[in-house]
Design a binder for these strands. Structure first.
Lengths: 334, 334
DNA sequence: TTGAAAGCGCTAACAT
DNA sequence: ATGTTAGCGCTTTCAA
């Protein structure tokens, strides 16, 4: 009932190979026969079966995307970058949520490899040794997007998380703060635990400010925990907050203001994300601007190079970031 | 180099058919031989090729998801609902962004059908006649998620958008407002143009309030246009706003407050979405609560029924909504 | 319970 | 420029 390449060949009085050639845009076809074949394709409503093609050619033109949670705006922005570039290179995307669960991640990898994806973009806050082992064993290229894997064995695209954190905290220090709190995301994330934390600590140390563990609070990146953190930190009287993401930062703003302090006069806040929320906050949030879309896009672009077996000059790409100064910090302009 | 079912069969001294049976959990295999086969599979690191399986069985256990924009939180929430249920039923998802562009939508449909997806979840603000035609012609089941198609020919999952809008506006009227603005989303969307607009108009008419076209503003659902709308409406002095989504509603809040009016004392606002932004606004937003995740989940569930050729009692499912009253409206409790 | 064999719909040599 | 043919790796009758 479904029309196949064989039906088209028969109707057009040519061989399957010829039909295949016109379908795939091979130039070795006489214009007249091409036209004839195209006509039959049209008449019969022939639609090439990509599964059969995949089996025969060993290419599926689909790539796997393993992402912690697509409903999280950080990741959905990344995903959009991935998808746009994938579309540009004619790939489709199989997208799955891992919820940062290692077993799910392993199983997803297995499923996608079983589906013969041509490549994989992988995102995870923590690449465990067993995960790394599987990533290395993959018969298909893999690139990590916004995910740290320190051996450098797997290609990745990131920003300099340490540097960005350092710079943000330094700005707070330059504005005269000595008691700077760090509202961190989950320490299970390597980026949080090692890179941002290190940026925070070193910025303090370089300014001869003693690091006080009680000024760092581990949260789940939610608005509510952002508010709660401010309450919890009250005894320590922080005058500035370095906050892991915009949503928590808004929680911090609200808790600080409800506590009767004004921003940025009495308390300054700098976030680490710069989603569109940053401009929707009052005061508007100063924030480290993460190029999420670009991380996704560049990751996918890098993956296409691997899939085409092109030469790769650098498999660990570091994208630039910037700091967007708005109203939650005192700036020269303000 | 890649190990196939044939390699396993040879090593285990059984036929391919037997290997296939154990891989697929067929009970007609003697435990001893099952064990033997499993052992060889383990040793050889055999991973079934889903593409070959798909070609032979005519099932890919993959469904297509055509979505306007995954980076938009409304849709990413929907997508998460779809993906969770898909995973539950062991389907993977090919996800593509259409940007509401009809040509892209048509082309995506074509690509996905070519990839032999077992079903499709489709989202679009406007189902044009040609699109409807293609959806009807699909050899594979399709369900519309959060998308209106009035002929009822295609299965769909929605809420009663009209009723929800009506009820929201009625609430504003009951609170004493006569001059209620409607900050609408794009009128290219059928839901906006017909359903919500109708809810707004009928609520007014049923309360003997004349509908004034100058009180409705068509916006693009962004924060900035929400703010701008308030400025544009100033001459008409609205005392209440019915706003199409949370992001714009926050823009409305800010513009109203910057205009020196207090919420909810002087101006009331009710939104139509209830994303997590609603609680992050100050004052917190009252809002029609859209069950986005559920719309996605139920759509996918419905699709599995079609894919399994189960009996469907109702192909147009309407999910319940509720209205979440917070601080941007005056409530009995407040 | 197991095996043999015929496809599934296409691509990719290889011939012509 | 076009055709022939042998797979790709699996499922699925049908037989045994």
């Amino acid at each position: 009932m479904t029309v196949t390449i064989y039906d088209v060949a028969r109707e057009a009085n040519v061989s399957m190979a010829t039909v295949s050639r016109v379908v795939n845009g091979n130039q070795n076809v006489k214009p007249a026969t091409r036209k004839k074949v195209l006509k039959v394709i049209e008449e019969l409503g022939y639609r090439p079966n990509a599964v059969a093609r995949g089996l025969a050619s060993k290419k599926t033109t689909t790539v796997g995307v393993i992402i912690p949670d697509i409903s999280n705006s950080t990741y959905s922005e990344l995903a959009r970058g991935i998808e746009d570039i994938a579309t540009m290179y004619r790939y489709n995307i199989i997208l799955s949520n891992s919820d940062q669960n290692e077993n799910k991640e392993l199983q997803l990898l297995e499923t996608m490899l079983g589906k013969q994806v041509d490549g994989i973009v992988f995102m995870s806050d923590m690449i465990t040794p067993v995960l790394l082992h599987e990533l290395e064993r993959s018969p298909t290229p893999i690139v990590l997007a916004g995910s740290i894997e320190e051996t450098g064995k797997i290609a990745s695209v990131n920003i300099d998380y340490f540097e960005a954190a350092y710079e943000a905290v330094k700005k707070l220090i330059e504005n005269g703060h000595l008691n700077i709190a760090f509202i961190s995301g989950p320490m299970t994330s390597k980026i949080n635990r090692d890179y941002k934390m290190k940026g925070y600590r070193e910025a303090l140390e370089d300014a001869d400010i003693t690091f006080k563990p009680e000024l760092v609070v581990e949260c789940n990146n939610s608005y509510d925990e952002g508010m709660q953190a401010v309450l919890d930190l009250k005894p320590h009287k922080p005058t500035a907050y370095f906050v892991n993401n915009d949503e928590m930062a808004i929680g911090v703003i609200h808790a600080v203001e409800e506590g009767g302090q004004s921003i940025p006069e009495e308390v300054e806040i700098i976030s680490y994300e710069n989603s569109k929320l940053a401009r929707m906050a009052r005061p508007m949030l100063s924030s480290v601007a993460l190029p999420l879309y670009d991380i996704g896009a560049v990751s996918m672009r890098l993956l296409t190079k691997y899939m085409n077996k092109e030469e790769i000059d650098e498999n660990q790409v570091i994208l630039p970031y910037r700091i967007e100064e708005r109203q939650s910090t005192k700036n020269d302009e303000s």
